[in-house]
């Protein structure tokens, strides 16, 4: 293979890795909307919180895996608490108030982050045994951690698929998305499902932040950047559709990565152009039902 082909393949790997990471965040956002009907602006904050948790615990324990083992359950718990204290009061309320409350939450999370860990940019070291690059040609190589990251994301995606397609909880989740009353007549506690789904969404976003931390560093405002791109993802894929979120995330990964290489002067704008094109072609997104 020529260097050009290898370079192309490297970009492809980057695009897939970005897309997979984005999917982990966007899937929670779309699940929470699809099932509970809640638009959550604070979803990007969970990504940010995950990244900072990884930073703090990796710093403390010196081991990213250990940090993950602590931080993932912690963020799931955090989701349970948030749902119980705040989000459950938003069900069925006007989207306007959901926007307002979750906007307030962003401010709170950002300020707390600033109070606790400050506004500096931090790096999170790559785990030692993955801290090498795989040489591909004389000049090109690929970092092992990024490959591992993609593999982990793929594994989580597969688990998510199994959870939703094959388990009883997944069936209830899917039924909840389509018919709330039916779930209740089946004798399933809808409140519990909502709580679990919300916490799952929080944990997924936080997990993505933790995985991304060693590759992107940890910085203020990282949550909001992700939130916007997640919205674009969900708009492209269709709100409430996991399949759509996956496709949207992959498309954005490709467009953003290859845009930065082949059309750097427009790179930031291409994903929005993609969204505009989808809006013109299919206003409800690629896999969306009619807009709610």
């Amino acid at each position: 293979m020529t260097d050009g082909t290898i370079f192309f393949l490297i970009q492809l790997l980057n695009a897939v890795q970005y897309g997979l990471l984005l999917f982990l965040v966007a899937s929670g956002l779309t699940l929470i909307f699809g099932i509970m009907g809640i638009i959550n602006l604070a979803h990007g904050s969970f990504y940010m919180i995950g990244a900072y948790l990884a930073f703090v615990f990796a710093d403390m324990t010196g081991n990213l895996w250990l940090a993950l083992a602590i931080a993932v359950p912690l963020s799931f718990l955090f989701g349970l608490v948030l749902e119980t204290l705040l989000f459950r009061f938003l069900y069925g309320r006007d989207h306007l108030y959901q926007v307002l409350l979750t906007y307030g939450l962003i401010l709170i999370f950002e300020e707390l982050r600033s109070l606790i860990v400050g506004n500096d940019v931090h790096g999170v070291p790559v785990p030692h045994f993955l801290d090498f690059s795989i040489p591909l040609t004389a000049t090109l190589s690929y970092p092992a951690y990024r490959l591992a990251l993609s593999a982990i994301c793929l594994a989580v995606t597969a688990l998510l698929y199994l959870l939703i397609q094959k388990t009883k909880l997944g069936m209830a989740i899917r039924a909840g998305a389509f018919n709330r009353e039916m779930v209740q007549t089946l004798g399933i506690d809808i409140g519990l499902i909502y709580r679990l789904v919300f916490a799952l969404g929080v944990a997924l976003a936080a997990f993505a932040g933790m995985l991304a931390a060693p590759t992107t560093s940890v910085f203020p405002g990282m949550g909001n950047q992700v939130l916007i791109i997640c919205f674009v993802t969900v708009v492209i894929g269709g709100i409430g559709s996991i399949k759509g979120a996956f496709l949207g995330a992959m498309l954005i990964g490709l467009v953003d990565t290859f845009g930065a290489v082949y059309a750097p002067q427009f790179s930031g704008l291409l994903v929005y152009a993609l969204m505009a094109a989808v809006l013109i072609w299919r206003p409800a997104g690629l896999f969306g039902a009619a807009a709610r």
Binding site: H95, F231, L279, A291
Partner: peptide
């Protein structure tokens, strides 16, 4: 304006 509701907010 091709979208509405929650789509409109996001877009």
């Amino acid at each position: 304006l091709r979208s509405s509701g929650v789509y409109f907010i996001m877009v």
